[in-house]
């Protein structure tokens, strides 16, 4: 698991990360979202014990990043922004080298390497020099290296950025599998759809500070307000006759549709359905208005920048 409190990093006059609090349990994925230079990589580097926090603390896989750097690094698998591949090595040599660095036994190295190369579709090219690989192949190999020692914590910076859709899907499936096997995963990404699909928790970081953090639903509720629903009728129907619960706000009304905002959907939605059924409303569809993470992100960013401009 990953736990941080007031985690901060100052480079001379520049505060790169400011008071980050995270709590990611085993079997959870945290997506760290933010612009370039927002502090994502610095945060990840502190979690890998590469950078010493200027303030606050972080515990990764039960180890303190300041005092037990070696143990932290042994427990973490990192996919870095730059893949860090040795171009004159073959994939087999490369994975074997890192297997040795992580003190894996020869049999284990062979089986892990074979499995990962096979899984990521690199088995055929495994004896070729990495310098001959395409961008996507390199990224897959870098990911394989991060997973080579089967770490309890994975810190992945843009895990699918250079991949074709098929490979990206493969990687997402693997991340989901790792999550189900109780790994703790942090993904830094600009791919909001991916973050939405994978993450249990989302944190939006801006200029070193976490602006917003929570589950996707919590973020949507917090930023975009209560969920909105559209009720479509099979033809013209007077919806003003409908008696709605108190926490439901009518947003718009047409002959054939009704748009409402529901403060407590768990309680109110069954009551709305009941009310519709009571008056025998010709309901064609009752659906939530789609609201994406992108909307949340853009709104948060816009507000942050607006606030900054005002200041």
């Amino acid at each position: 698991m990953i736990e941080t409190h007031d985690l901060s990093k100052q480079f001379h006059d520049f505060l790169a990360v400011d008071g980050v609090n995270l709590n990611v349990q085993a079997g959870q994925i945290l997506a760290l979202l933010g612009q370039n230079g927002a502090g994502k990589t610095t945060t990840v580097r502190m979690l890998t014990a590469l950078l010493q926090p200027s303030r606050g603390w972080a515990r990764v896989a039960g180890y303190d990043v300041t005092r037990n750097g070696h143990d932290v690094r042994a427990s973490v698998g990192v996919l870095t922004e730059q893949h860090g591949l040795y171009m004159r090595m073959t994939a087999v040599e490369y994975l074997d080298f890192f297997g040795q660095v992580y003190s894996l036994a020869p049999i284990m190295r062979k089986s892990r390497s074979d499995h990962l190369l096979e899984y990521f579709g690199l088995a055929e090219a495994s004896r070729r020099r990495i310098g001959e690989y395409s961008k996507g192949m390199r990224q897959k190999l870098a990911l394989a290296r991060a997973m080579m020692h089967d770490p309890g914590v994975l810190l992945l910076d843009e895990p699918t950025s250079a991949m074709d859709p098929e490979s990206a899907r493969l990687v997402r499936d693997e991340i989901a599998r790792l999550k189900s096997s109780q790994r703790t995963i942090v993904i830094c990404s600009h791919n909001l759809t991916e973050a939405e699909a994978l993450a249990d928790q989302i944190a939006i970081i801006y200029r070193g500070r976490i602006l917003l953090q929570g589950t996707l639903d919590e973020l949507k509720h917090q930023v975009l307000g209560a969920p909105e629903y559209e009720i479509k009728f099979a033809g013209a129907w007077d919806s003003s006759r409908l008696k709605l619960p108190k926490d439901v706000e009518v947003l718009s009304r047409t002959e054939s549709s009704l748009k409402v905002r529901v403060m407590r959907p768990q309680e109110s939605n069954p009551q709305i359905l009941k009310a519709l059924s009571k008056v025998s409303a010709p309901v064609l569809a009752f659906q939530e208005e789609p609201r994406s993470l992108e909307q949340v992100y853009l709104k948060v960013m816009m507000e942050a920048k607006g606030l900054e401009n005002v200041q």
Binding site: L50, H70, R73, V78, T80, F98, V101, Y102, A142
Partner: peptide, 13 residues
């Protein structure tokens, strides 16, 4: 070349 970070992230003193 960007190869230093994986090495530094490894459990090497």
């Amino acid at each position: 070349r960007g190869t230093i970070e994986p090495m530094l992230s490894a459990p090497l003193d």
